Amino acid sequence: MSHVNIQDYEKAAQALLEPAYWDYYAGGSDDEITLRANRAIFDHIRLRPRILKDVTTCDTTTTALGTPLPMPIIVAPTACHNLAHPEGECETVRGVSQAGTIMTASSVSSRSLEEIAEAASTPLWFQLYIYQDRSITINLLERARQTGYRAIVLTVDVPRLGNRERDLRNNFKRLDSANFVVNDVTQLRRSLTWKDITWLRSLTPLPLLIKGILTAEDAIIALEHGVDGIIVSNHGGRQLDGAISGLEALPEIVEAVAGRCEIYVDGGIRRGTDVLKALALGARAVLVGRPILWGLTVKGQDGVNHILELLKSELELAMALCGCPTLNDITPSLVKL
């Protein structure tokens, strides 16, 4: 079968994965309202293309925290890649390395952060939670620094795990992470506050991004605590059902931050036109999660690379058709909300 878009990969991956594994990857919380909204908002927003521009070439290159990238597309942190491929995240990062963009390794990965780094020939970010036992967090930070990860992505929207009913019906138990002797989500620090951000900031020289902000109010507080970037995210619709989508939250956060740190967004991105819309609303780049897992399931590293290349080529075409030869030409006037 020829896979010409991400939807083709999604259908193929569902046919290949065990049903419980598919539900773990694909599912959201409660009634999955937010999960669906993440996709629906992109369908709702329309483009206002400009004509008679010289789009002989369209340049998709950019930077993220100073790292040059061939496209404004980064791989989001997702857990348990071994459900999709025996080599897990090591196979994923080989595909991401082919595409040349950043991979964000999850702290609950099925391969250790050291193994992922060894398999990589592309820049890496490390996604972190703060744990009740602070020594766990300190250890992970130091391991990430020593292994060459370029930034820390702190996920802050999981004081408790969302009510993921597909997993409950399947009696699905997530496999232990390779980064821990014992992996227990009850060890996540429920009392996480802004004071913990100050503490974390003091522990590492690496750039710090906060993932899980959905309001301008919290974005301003994050700036006051010295973050280097904000990832506007609702955790792929897996936490608070009924929360707004990242794309809906993006404009107010961009306005509040006013260029004082880099802003990224995730959730529901399936087409190059989706990337274009996110950039028009102020994102520096987007993060893509589930489609990477689908590519991994279907074709291993080649599937991962193809997912990223599809998005890049679709973005380049969308830029040409919208009269945008560079990413700087993508402005809010391009979209109609």
Rank of each mutant, 00 (worst) to 15 (best):
S245G: 05
I210Y: 01
E10S: 06
A13R: 09
D31F: 14
I74H: 06
E118F: 00
I136W: 05
R50T: 11
G300C: 07
R270P: 00
A120D: 03
D31S: 14
L188K: 07
R145A: 14
A320I: 07
D31P: 00
G66R: 11
R201T: 06
Y129N: 11
N5R: 08
R46C: 06
L192W: 11
L317I: 14
Y264D: 11
S333K: 13
R134A: 02
P77L: 02
V181H: 12
S110W: 03
L192N: 03
R36C: 05
D167M: 07
A219E: 03
S110C: 10
T273E: 13
H225K: 12
Y9M: 08
E224G: 14
T193Q: 06
R169V: 11
P332V: 08
E142T: 15
A219V: 08
A76Y: 00
P68W: 02
L293C: 14
D31Q: 15
A76E: 10
D23T: 13
K195V: 02
S245Y: 01
P77E: 02
K53C: 13
Y149G: 11
R134W: 15
L175C: 03
S109W: 02
D228H: 14
S97M: 06
L52G: 01
D167V: 04
A278E: 06
S177D: 06
L334C: 06
L321Y: 12
G246H: 03
R150D: 10
I197D: 04
I210K: 01
E252S: 15
K195T: 11
L240S: 02
R145C: 00
Q301H: 15
K195I: 00
M319F: 12
P332Q: 10
G66I: 08
E115I: 01
I220T: 15
E248V: 01
T215H: 12
Y129I: 08
L141G: 04
V158E: 12
V286E: 09
F172H: 11
S313Y: 11
P19M: 04
I45V: 15
N139F: 00
T92Q: 07
L16I: 14
T78M: 14
K173Q: 14
A37C: 00
T67L: 13
I33L: 15
A216H: 12
A84C: 15
A285E: 07
I33M: 14
A120W: 02
P159D: 06
A216G: 13
L247F: 05
K11V: 14
P49D: 08
L168N: 02
N82G: 09
S135K: 13
L276H: 04
G148A: 07
S2H: 12
N38P: 07
R46P: 00
N171W: 01
I152N: 03
Q7A: 13
L334G: 10
T61D: 03
I230N: 10
G323D: 03
R270E: 06
V227G: 12
R143D: 05
D133T: 07
I213D: 03
I244T: 11
T326Q: 05
S245F: 01
A144V: 07
A256N: 07
S121C: 10
G212E: 04
L35G: 08
I136L: 14
N38S: 04
V304P: 09
R50C: 04
S202H: 12
T62G: 09
L247R: 05
V227T: 10
K312M: 12
L154R: 05
K299P: 00
